[in-house]
Amino acid sequence: MGRDPLIRLRGIEFSYPGREVLKGLDFALWRGDRVGITGPNGSGKTTLLHIMMGLLKPQAGEVEVFGQQRRQESDFKEVRRKVGLLFQDPDDQLFCPTVAEDVAFGPLNLGKKHPEAWKIVRETLRAVGLEGFEGRLTHTLSGGEKRLASLASVLAMGPEVLLLDEPTAGLDEETTERVLRVLAESDLTYLIVTHDKEVLSRATDVVYRLNAGRLHRLNP
């Protein structure tokens, strides 16, 4: 396990009807890595994250997570329990009436008992700075609060790896700062897709640029 990367992609090819997006892409994410991926709109950054989670199936190439080949839907069930994906649009992620229920959705799916789930809800909300938001209705939250709540809903599952799809897009400075602080305080391995130069320089050690279907390392 120690010698294998947490996530490894080999020769990934993916195209949407009439558009080739990924062309023989290779990538490896090791434990403790803090990686940033940037690149033009439509270059396939979100697609890449969705392939890692098994939401999209590449036409060619290998997806290896936690040292194992992942091919079918059933292979990815374990992946989704240990890898958290923060969606680009928090509205896609929040679907329960209250914040507490949404944050508890993942832990309950993982089989946590109720007192434990409540404890996780309170702790996670405190960690993202949404203390006391338990009973708030998700659809009445502001954009920044929605983002933090969806981040909490992913963190609540206790993931080993975090994949973040433009986590700071459209956020004000204060909320961006909060997201960065949550990441800094966690000892998670993570991968951020973003256009935000400040996020790249402050929260990541390695930056890749996705262009013409492959990843190109930017900094040494």
Binding site: F95, F105, N109, V121
Partner: peptide, 24 residues
Amino acid sequence: DRSRRVYQAMICRGFEGKYWVLDH
């Protein structure tokens, strides 16, 4: 499109066809 993404977000959080409620 959106319903597809909502469903994807649900399975990413371990949804396997069962709903659990926080308050028993």
